[in-house]
Design a protein around this nucleic acid. Structure first.
Lengths: 338, 338
DNA sequence: AGCAATTGCACAACCGGTTGCGCACCGGGG
DNA sequence: CCCCGGTGCGCAACCGGTTGTGCAATTGCT
């Protein structure tokens, strides 16, 4: 590796002049020909500043960590792309990590910062983390932005318009003529899951409809939970004619489980999910969903974190632009007269 | 952050003694009580060595990069878990990156190393990278292990038993009685795709069956490619009774497209895919697949890279333990007599 | 007691950058 | 001629560790 010293020596100047020339220091007094000579030699030698030295000098690593429950998740991938859109131009690298339950998880996350590997973290709540556990993993004082989740007494979060998204999904079904609606939600330990369920209940209420507790199942966001919720609904003698599923993976699980149970979708049961992925677009029938601004949540969170590292205050933001968008596919039609 | 200096000062010793005590330097001559005092104080102060300083001193960052075509991919996630299993205990962090086409992609990858952000890279070939482009992105001399792909003249690769996996899939169908087999493969620019197609052809040949070129489509590994391949097969008057699909996402695409075209799976068309994910297990019918040792490929590649960074030679390895495993699900049955 | 060997620790250089400051040299004005 | 200010550059400290070496104090031996 060619170092600043190598450049300086080749140019016949000292490290300091070389550094100032390469950084374009306007206050530096350097003869024009010296400056260009240094730049040329640096170019020629392929000089690249050593991040490790910079990191030590400025006590900044130039990296942030993204802590996710499960990298095997499309929602995460779209968020990541938004994060990279902000981080990469800023010269910031992104490190992906997962977090176990405390105390191992807590230690791992804190080590990242204490060791100076990263300057701050973006963290997505695990579905099975309650507030206390989340608080313990990310103690106050470490630069953190919560993504797609919120911890009540903490600032620094970016969330989606969850209630609004669910309202759009629910009203789509109501507009089609459905009156008997079920809800398959995430685990209620997760604040996002709670917001979505409330969005469902409120939308029903605003249309003068009642929520049927036996049709509301909050088991989790992944496919098996969606399938289990369908099982729980199908054992009952009376069924809803449509399901609002508060996640896309659970919607895939629900759809498949309905097909397994020989319930025709959408003829006998409509489904609307939240978020859209290649899977929900690919399966047959493709799933009607509400697209949420996932990429935007990533970019906004990254901007907030980077700003915070530069001294700006954290805040709690809800992404409302772009607005949630209904994507009508093949799993939602008017209820068939029985 | 508490530094070594802080510990030394609190213990009333010099940096050097503190460092040697904390590192358990056996050659160091330190009085026993001094040593324990230092350790206690370090513990008490919560001292954690600063990685940035270590990185600068040893010219090692303690991180590796995993370059993938698309983090939104289950295959990648399982590999990542294998990598983390090796890297984490070794104190090595993993940075996830993607790579564009040259020259931007090349520059981005090389900057990671030149800047000293990472010590080496694990790279998975993009489906649309030919040998030359891959070679350009990762020039000789930078510590690299190719994962799930191989570049002929380069050492340092870990691949799957691709031909063997496809053989198992193909023979499963032949054993069921299928004689008319189609093949949906990845883009032939990718060496893995080529190995799998060859595995298909050879298995057919070894059973005295002929491959029908019009039933062999190598469009890509993702769901839309699988769907497109199905379209291409269905337009013909004669059809195979079963499909070997060389990836799992394309298998999902193929299954859904068949359902769209009202072709009953598995009654009218069987499908066997390669790799298994929650999607292939969830959809209805669940897809019969061959599980490949994806986690192992990750751990093996990580071990090779870390070993190489410690001076060991690179090699080209095929993972044959655990062996590929046939998972019979719902998309493969004996052909129905027409 | 005298000398060598050993013990216990501190000093300082180094990794590769950035940056405050000082110094030599130059030209211009009184 | 002297002084002053500006110009162009180098010196050295610093970030936080590791490590070769030096030096005093203690110990051991005769």
């Amino acid at each position: 590796m060619v170092s600043l010293n190598d450049v300086a020596r080749a140019a016949g100047v000292s490290k300091s002049v070389a550094s100032r020339a390469l950084n374009g220091d306007v206050n530096a007094r350097i003869r024009e020909d010296t400056r260009t000579r240094i730049l040329e030699i640096a170019e020629q030698l392929g000089y690249v500043p050593n991040r490790r030295a910079i990191a030590l000098r400025f006590n900044r690593s130039g990296a942030i960590a993204l802590i996710v429950p499960d990298p095997n998740n499309h929602v995460f991938a779209e968020m990541l792309s938004g994060i990279q859109q902000v981080a990469t131009p800023a010269g910031i690298d992104v490190l992906i990590g997962t977090v176990d339950h405390a105390p191992e998880g807590r230690d791992a996350v804190q080590r990242l910062l204490k060791q100076g590997r990263v300057d701050g973290i973006l963290i997505q709540r695990r579905e099975d983390f309650d507030d206390n556990e989340l608080r313990e993993v990310v103690p106050e004082g470490i630069p953190t932005v919560f993504v797609n989740c919120r911890l009540d007494d903490r600032t620094g979060s970016v969330i989606l318009p969850d209630a609004e998204g669910v309202r759009i999904a629910t009203e789509h079904l109501i507009d089609l003529g459905h009156r008997d609606l079920g809800f398959i939600g995430g685990s209620p330990t997760h604040d996002t899951a709670v917001r979505r369920r409330i969005g469902f209940e409120e939308t029903l209420a605003s249309h003068g409809l009642a929520s049927r507790p036996e049709w509301v199942h909050e088991l989790g966001w992944e496919a098996p939970s969606g399938a289990a919720a369908v099982d729980a609904i199908l054992v009952r003698p009376d069924r809803p004619t449509a399901l609002v599923v508060a996640s896309v993976n659970a919607a895939v699980g629900a759809l498949s489980q309905l097909q397994r149970a020989q319930v025709k979708v959408p003829e006998e049961m409509s489904i609307v999910g939240i978020h859209t992925t290649w899977v929900s677009e690919t399966v047959f029938p493709a799933i009607t969903t509400v697209r949420m601004p996932l990429s935007k949540i990533g970019s906004t969170a990254a901007e907030m974190l980077l700003g915070h590292l530069d001294g700006e205050a954290l805040s709690n933001v809800t992404i409302d632009d772009p607005a949630p968008e209904l994507l009508v596919r093949g799993t939602s039609i008017a209820p068939t007269k029985a």
